[in-house]
Amino acid sequence: MSELIIIAIGSALVSNVVLSQFLGLCPFLGVSKKVETAAGMGTAVIFVITLASLVCSVIYEFLLQPLNITYLQTIVFILLIAALVQFVEMFLKKYMPPLYESLGVYLPLITTNCAVLGVALTNVQKTYGILKSVVNGFSTALGFTISIIILAGIREKMEHNDVPAPFRGMPIVLVTAGLMAIAFCGFSGLL
């Protein structure tokens, strides 16, 4: 149990997926204009990454390892993830329209998001079992959600600030992200 908690804190805060590993940077910068959309994106990411790490680790454990074809992991995982996202989208559209309306817009943006594949590969690299993989996936995605919501909050406040012309738009967001990364460096003493 304590091991699971350490994994969770480690991947959510200490080595935050965006701020220290730079995975999933595109949606982090691109969908963080408003807190509302950021929260929607975060929820969708939690949903997809948890599901993807479950499916990927099951396939790895029961298909790739017994057949001795673990070197195919990258190809298998990326296809699994892309197919999974498409399937989830269709499933939600058909059976859970309210959930589809709130998450559906974000799903195509996640299809080839590097964070999803990154988590699946880290799980394999660190030889996590199925349970640990799911915990790692969920907490990594939680870390993503935390940081994207904080960034969106800061961006909303910053909207009417007087920023020097060349720094308007992307550069000032990157500076903000850099300052957040410094703050998150503080968590490294936690474990």
Binding site: M170, V175, G178, A181, I182
Partner: peptide, 25 residues
């Protein structure tokens, strides 16, 4: 040493995009 760590990457990229914006403007 912050430039080798994670935050430095964001700052360097921020300067780069600022230069881009300047050229664009």
């Amino acid at each position: 040493s912050i430039f080798v760590l994670a935050p430095g990457a964001f700052f360097v990229l921020a300067c780069l995009t600022a230069i881009q914006n300047k050229v664009k403007l």
